[in-house]
Design a protein around this nucleic acid. Sequence first.
RNA 1: UCCCCGGUAGCUCAGUCGGUAGAGCAAGCGGCUGUUAACCGCUGGGUCGCUGGUUCGAGUCCGGCCCGGGGAGCCA
Length: 468
Amino acid sequence: MDKIDFSVRSVLAGEAPKDIPVTIKGWVRTRRDSKAGISFVHLSDGSSFHPLQVVAPSTLSNYADEVLKLTAGCALEAEGMIVPSPAKGQPFEMQASAIRVIGWVEDPDSYPIQPKPHSLEYLREVAHLRPRTNVIAAATRVRHTLAKAIHSFFDANGFFWVNTPIITGSDAEGAGALFRVSTLDLANLPRTEEGAVDFGKDFFGRETFLTVSGQLNIEAYCLALTKVYTFGPTFRAENSNTSRHLAEFWMIEPEIAFADLSDDATLAERLLKSALGTLLKERQDDLAFFDERIEKGLVAKLEGIVGSEFVRMDYGEAIAVLERATEKFEFPVKWGVDLQSEHERYLTEKHVKKPVVVMNYPKDIKAFYMRSNDDGRTVAAMDVLAPGIGEIIGGSQREERLDVLDARMVERGIDREHYAWYRDLRRYGTVPHAGFGLGFERTMAYVTGLANVRDAIPFPRTPGHAKY
RNA sequence: UCCCCGGUAGCUCAGUCGGUAGAGCAAGCGGCUGUUAACCGCUGGGUCGCUGGUUCGAGUCCGGCCCGGGGAGCCA
């Protein structure tokens, strides 16, 4: 065995052998030359936050022709012995015995990713190259670990992951505007006798859309498997232009049977704490970077969340707190109105300074499927608000009583036949159940300190943006 | 969709009272150095977002449009 492939991560962790040459492949971050006869090439393969320092001696056959011409972004293969680094900055480095350039950067002068801080706005315009930066690579690793931690939490607690459909025939009432899915020829639409578009001729024989929520479908599996969740993409065709909205985003939606709103809130709190705890253990390098460059005090903030109790507050209590506040709000506060962003921010950022669960909202501002409370004017809904990001979770106990559900649908003018299968769930062995939706990118924004969800997803889709 | 801010070199930005284009970084060349997003010197690099107008003269003032960002609403 003359050479072995290892990752930069394994080398820096001291896991690579020290008695035989190893080969590392990656992309150049920086190159510094010493006329004493060596060059330092920082090589990154994405496996860890820190790059590998490759020490290239001038005795390499291609030193003058190639090594001295390496610029940021060049792909290469470096072979050599791993040795303890005599200088500060890294525990180990490679004494290169061979460097093979695999891919040059043509025109280094205009290569969009330079070894300097770029603005996140600029990086969005080169979305195909931005994973080569520290910040996006770190976010990508955090995203992976966060997803894994969420799956692990559910698995350890007896939940089953259910892949609810991406294409749906129902429009999950009130969750937002829909993207149509159709194979009809737009230039030559089939028409009914009345002149309307004849969706009976469409691929599925009816109107279909991209899902805005897996909730209705997951309820069906909940009422058989008891503890289930979805984790998949979700689509909203809203013309939303904010740092908190994407047209395509990922959502985690657990649903638990034989459970009420309090159980739901407990699950939300345990899930968040568990996932954050895993991140703190497994992504220290990346979190340290976010702490230093993106949000000072980030790690302490996350540790604080893991170690503290979420504050629970009734909607009515939240209104009272806001009414007492000396803060000037643009929108007046009174019982019955939905909380505005400024109100949510005040509650979570100034009043309690950590995540807060607001529960039992007025029924008129919430969806038809949320369970009516005995007071006749509120429903068992909850929102988890997080500092800096606002609503991170929205959930509720579901209305399991068919007569009450029907009454609510009539109230809202919703066609019961359209929800026939959803009503069936209340006709056959109905039980109290509850669930919530956790926005994955909003959670990412919260744990990285990145202020915009567009930087928390590999290729963000927003109005007018689907180029990459 | 509404409100606000912005668009000048590959990137980040400065550009005064309207007088004809600047810096740092990057790139190229040279110097120095077991260096750490090194340091020193030199060089090249511009449709000042587009368009119309005011003016002797517009990066600068005015209108329209395009693009980006922030905030609001919708919501996760």
